[in-house]
Simulated scan of single mutants.
Amino acid sequence: MNDHLVLVIKYRRKVINQAQMFQNIGEKYNTTLLEWNHDYDHVHALFKAHSKTGLSKFINAYKSASSRIIKKEFPPVRKQLWKVNFGSRSFCLITTGSAPIHVVKQYIENQGKK
């Protein structure tokens, strides 16, 4: 089964591409990134996870690690944050179920296009 994850950047700030980071962290949680794209202030990821993967643990690990790395690699980001968190505490995770995978991929590919 495939999952579609939507993450919003805190304060609706500009997204920094984190696809490789998502893929690297996902390997430790038996997930495979299928598609990644973003609009100005939110990220879409389509991935496949093993049935025994703790998705909330994986997502929280990704959000925590990516926040740390982004703040280290892009110091000006720290000045734009009121608190230490880079991403919003919430997220939207949708199991694609019986939706054709090519339709979901196309939707994600079109993110950021006007």
Rank of each mutant, 00 (worst) to 15 (best):
M1D: 08
N2S: 08
H4C: 02
H4F: 14
H4G: 04
L5T: 10
V6H: 03
V6L: 05
L7W: 04
K10I: 10
K10C: 03
Y11A: 07
R13T: 11
R13V: 11
K14F: 02
V15I: 15
N17T: 14
N17W: 07
Q18S: 15
Q20I: 12
F22T: 10
F22I: 15
Q23V: 07
N24M: 13
I25G: 04
G26F: 02
G26P: 10
T32V: 14
L33D: 03
L34T: 02
E35I: 06
E35Y: 12
E35H: 09
H38N: 13
D41I: 10
H42S: 08
H44C: 10
H44W: 07
A45Q: 01
F47G: 04
A49I: 01
H50R: 06
S51F: 01
L55K: 02
F58G: 11
N60C: 03
S64P: 00
A65K: 15
S67R: 13
I69S: 10
I69W: 12
I69D: 05
I70K: 08
K71P: 03
K72V: 06
K72P: 00
E73P: 00
F74I: 12
P75A: 14
P75E: 14
P76A: 09
V77M: 11
V77D: 04
R78A: 13
Q80E: 15
Q80L: 12
Q80R: 15
L81G: 04
L81A: 09
W82R: 09
V84H: 02
N85S: 12
N85I: 05
G87L: 11
R89M: 04
G97K: 05
S98I: 11
I101Y: 07
I101A: 05
H102A: 13
V104P: 09
Q106H: 14
Y107R: 11
I108V: 14
I108P: 10
I108R: 08
N110S: 11
K113D: 01
K114C: 02
K114E: 01
